[in-house]
Design a protein around this nucleic acid. Structure first.
Lengths: 192, 192
DNA sequence: CCATTTTACATACAGTCTGTATGTTTTTGT
DNA sequence: ACAAAAACATACAGACTGTATGTAAAATGG
């Protein structure tokens, strides 16, 4: 049973990312040791340092995977398009559903900003969830003008906090109602 | 020149907290090594492990200091009290001013949630900034009802993101306007 | 299809870090 | 002044990180 180099690399990288994800979620970046990761992945540290520059690079790969998965889940859920408000509410719901994957809030919203820096983590997020939020807001609040960018940023943070609260046991509908109140309030307010 | 034990302990603890704060801000928790901290503090590792259980306990002390400083700054700024809306806006402004202290956003909003866990970091925040936000909101939005808690949480997250954006170079007034729009929108909306 | 190079790892190693155990000095209580 | 305790400093064991080096399998070229 011989594997091509492409296959070997792909499988090893994925095994390291999967194992890394698991242990990073469990113990956090700072307390995670590479020997434990490679043991879980069934390889040696040699393989890790062959495929990734260092521990942080592996973490970055894990985060990139997670962010991509969230983006894909949201994109897949944005089908109907009945109106600008409904689109925003549906997007929020899809975001919460995507972030309900165990460990995802810890990885994307707590560990990543600390390890990669807020700019880098925000950049990953911006390319994904935040971009579609901005589009939705622009359609829903054409009067926003210069406030669009700050509002996008602040609401994105509110979404993130809601996702954390929901994973911590908060009622999802409570937070969806609060988000709706913020959005509807903005619409009421900016229309005058 | 002999110091009392009380003085010795206080000075050493403070030196460790100050040096730790400096290096945690510079390199983040995971990349910070205790030898560097004690060198900056002018003591040995023995002193560190005499006063703190481990590296994380020192970090926790640093965070507690920062959170307390923020709480004190906000409390000191809430003097006038002209109205519920003005009080909220003034609170926001005071929060941004307090968080403008270099490194504070990184420590309180990025490192702490990762190292201490979101619950613990949120608890520290809840006792301080978030509690006064809830009070302000309750007075400003008496119609909020069951939405008060989720809204407090989401708006607190928005404040945090704004503080990060401001330290990253964003215009403070842009974010204050966006916050005001969110608050005024809520008031408009809930009043129907 | 064989020789050579390159890739994908595994092993070995040097330096550093963490936490602990133990030793020493200074303060405190009597 | 003496015993006890506190505040450190020093020494050490184990573990971890990143690198250097070695090896086997796959790609490459003639």
């Amino acid at each position: 049973m011989s594997r091509s180099n492409r296959e070997r690399t792909e499988q090893t990288r994925q095994a390291l990312i999967d194992a890394g994800r698991c242990i990073f979620v469990e113990k956090g970046y700072a307390e995670t040791a590479t020997p434990e990761i490679v043991a879980a992945a069934g390889v040696t540290r040699g393989a890790l340092y062959h495929h990734f520059e260092d521990k942080k690079a592996l973490f970055q790969a894990v985060i990139a995977c997670e962010a991509q998965a969230v983006a894909k889940a949201i994109e897949a859920a944005s089908a109907p398009e009945q109106g600008t408000r409904a689109a925003l509410i549906a997007g929020a719901s899809a975001y919460f559903a995507a972030m309900a994957q165990p460990g995802r809030t810890r990885l994307l919203l707590m560990e990543a900003p600390a390890v990669l820096g807020s700019p880098a983590a925000a950049a990953l997020d911006a390319e994904n969830a935040e971009a579609s939020l901005r589009e939705g807001l622009a359609a829903f609040l054409p009067e926003a003008g210069a406030l669009l960018d700050p509002l996008t940023s602040l609401l994105s943070a509110a979404f993130d906090r809601a996702a954390i609260a929901i994973e911590a046991g908060g009622d999802r509908r409570d937070y969806e109602r609060a988000i709706a109140a913020l959005l509807d309030g903005l619409a009421d307010h900016l229309r005058r």
